[in-house]
Amino acid sequence: MKRLFLYRLAVVAGAIALLEIFCLTGVIDKITMQPPHLIARDLYRLLASGRMNGAIWKTSTNTLLALVLALGVGVVAAALLHRLRALRDTLDPLFATYYAVPVFAFYPFFIVVFGLGDLPQILIAFMLGVVAMIVNTLNGLDRVPPVLLKTGRIMRLTPIDTALRLTLPAAGPYILTGVKLAVAYAFIGIIGSEFILSRGGIGYEINFAYNNFDNATMYPLIVLILLASIAINTVLTRWEKTLLARRGAR
């Protein structure tokens, strides 16, 4: 465990140190990139100034909105599809190839239809997240051991109790995998569409800074996105691990 941590630390620290050296010695020129320690300083200043609070707020709320939609619709749709075999079989080719299709390609179309507001972004993020949620929830529901449902009948649980106390917890780890993916996709969807074309949000600010050769804003914001995404992903993976560890191999 310790060895793995040290290995990872060495990789990250090594990469940063290398960048630092390249930037300071001029192998990477100033116009391309600032040395990491300056980026860190700029990030601190940027956050302290509060200049980006509006953009951060916009991106966060949109991501959250898309995520909640994806999770809610995903679970309900999966529960329905689990019962409607024929519909599920028909949609199966869609699910199988869904993530091979560039969902972002629909973004211009949504802009044309809904205008250049938050809605097209939320729609893209929702579309990216919801299918991961549906597929993983379905997978979880498929794997609920029949013997648990029989146990529920022996104990004469009501259908709601069965769903909440047996099916849902039994499928829990798979659903959590879906949640993890949906979180990542929602974030990717919002940032990505802000980035391609929008009127605000962190993605927009990065794009704006890029167009104005404002590296002192662009790099800190990119680092901010990376840190946020890594942090969220790490927390969810931890949670998933403790859940799985408690259940042993299952």
């Binding site: 013997v147 648990l148 029989k150 022996i154 004469r156 047996l166 917890p169 829990g172 408690r246 042993g248």
Partner: peptide
């Protein structure tokens, strides 16, 4: 329908892992 006062132990492990 499963009547009360009948208990069943199955061959498969039916303990709830959570």
């Amino acid at each position: 329908e499963a009547p009360d006062s009948i208990g069943v132990v199955f061959q498969e492990d039916a303990s709830l892992p959570w």
